[in-house]
């Protein structure tokens, strides 16, 4: 009934510990990368960036995405593995429907007057 202690795991599963740690690190990096991309798109929409700036920004983000893809492949991590549930902040990254679907709704009574139960 005992779960292996962290020390036992370190001795017997060093690769999986490394992978777990990388997963944590890459999750944070991926979060930042996505936030940066979102912000870049907002600046693009704002129309206040010069052509050179747009090009430099795009190239930088493209290289960042490529670097992340390589790291993910090396550690056999998928995009889903790196998703982070941020609770109320989740809507920063994820599509809106996920944000709504993530909440517990109130009870909606079809007919508020009908609380008399079975006849």
């Amino acid at each position: 009934m005992d779960r292996p202690s962290i020390l036992t795991r370190l001795e017997s599963e060093p690769e999986s510990i490394e992978r777990d740690l990388m997963k944590l690190v890459l999750t944070i990096i991926e979060l930042i990368r996505q936030l940066m991309e979102k912000q870049a798109l907002r600046r693009l929409d704002g129309g206040d960036l010069g052509d050179d700036q747009v090009e430099a920004l795009g190239l930088g983000l493209k290289r960042l995405e490529q670097a992340m893809d390589e790291l993910k492949e090396r550690y056999a991590l998928t995009a889903t593995d790196l998703e982070l549930d941020l609770g109320p902040l989740g809507s920063l990254l994820r599509d809106d429907w996920l944000g709504e679907a993530a909440q517990t709704g109130e009870i909606t009574m079809a007919d508020v007057d009908d609380l008399s139960g079975p006849g």
Partner: peptide, 15 residues
């Protein structure tokens, strides 16, 4: 992304 895509094109695609 492929390596020939320009920065601007990358951003437009993301958009």
């Amino acid at each position: 992304s492929d390596s020939t895509e320009s920065g601007a094109a990358y951003l437009m695609r993301k958009k």
